[in-house]
């Protein structure tokens, strides 16, 4: 098992391998590019999701999400080699702060969970579209 400080960043080998919805100007790669000013947008209808694959199996203690207008979010993890067999590990309602970037720390539910892949399912939102600026994780 590997240890890393910021395991979800592209620099640490993590990649977004799948995202629903598509605007080439705001692709899902923006979630992982380490730039706080770029973001991924959903392009209509819910649910929407993206999957982040890590460079190996990691023990996760904290996940931080910077997003706007997300309401119901479910996070699932998988320890398979391929991004399959996901199991839900937490479901959360983000409190609405109009037009502010909501910074969400998911600590207790995630503490000590192992994952090779993380799947973020946005079930509902406060508007037709949401943005995700970044996702990072700590081990």
């Amino acid at each position: 098992m590997t240890k890393a400080g910021d395991l979800c960043l592209s620099a640490a080998g993590a990649r977004v391998i799948l995202a629903t919805s598509s605007d080439e100007r705001h692709p899902a790669e923006h979630i992982m590019d380490g730039n706080p000013e770029t973001f991924w947008t959903t392009t209509g209808m819910f649910p929407q999701e993206f999957i982040i694959s890590l460079s190996g199996v990691f023990k996760i203690n904290k996940i931080t999400i910077h997003s706007s207008l997300v309401k119901n979010l479910r996070i699932e993890t998988s320890i398979s080699k391929e991004p399959v067999n996901f199991e839900p590990c937490t479901e959360k309602v983000l409190i609405f702060v109009y037009l502010l970037i909501y910074i969400c720390f998911l600590l207790p539910q995630l503490s000590g969970i192992q994952a090779a892949h993380l799947r973020f399912v946005i079930l509902s939102a406060y508007d037709h579209f949401v943005a995700v600026y970044s996702v990072s994780g700590d081990t």
Partner: peptide, 17 residues
């Protein structure tokens, strides 16, 4: 209308950072 709403929203997302 839906398209313009999207464009407006994206401008909002940009202005947040």
């Amino acid at each position: 209308s839906f398209y313009h709403m999207y464009q407006e929203r994206v401008e909002n997302f940009k202005s947040l950072v």
